[in-house]
Amino acid sequence: MSKEFLSQYLLYWLIAVLFMIGPIGMIFKNNLMKKLMAMNIMQVAVIIFFLALGQKMDATLPIEIPGLTGVTNYINPLPHALMLTAIVVSLSTTGVALALLLLIQKKYGVLEEDEVLRRMDQ
């Protein structure tokens, strides 16, 4: 494996796989909790993707070190700022989803989707 392969493809491929876990889980899993987890993994994949975009060779954290100037010495701060927001969004979605799951569990007693739908129609 060449260095080029690693830097050009491997991480993007991993992100793609992680990202596709979301739809896969959504389609093939029956348990609502597992679906939620798949969804979370999908969001994390996007976050990793953005953070990967911000990296630079031989650069340090985007916090000013006295005396060290120059754009190439610091990694790109923008994706980090964006992803803080995305993390919070992910957290909020999960919170809401858990609240909904709690209600479903209380009401229907199960978290298997087909069972829930069956009991819903009764």
Binding site: G95, L98, A99, L102, L103, K106
Partner: peptide, 13 residues
């Protein structure tokens, strides 16, 4: 808030 809501015993349905 979220913690409090999630850990409440008496969830009314």
């Amino acid at each position: 808030t979220i913690y409090d809501a999630l850990t409440r015993r008496e969830v009314s349905l």
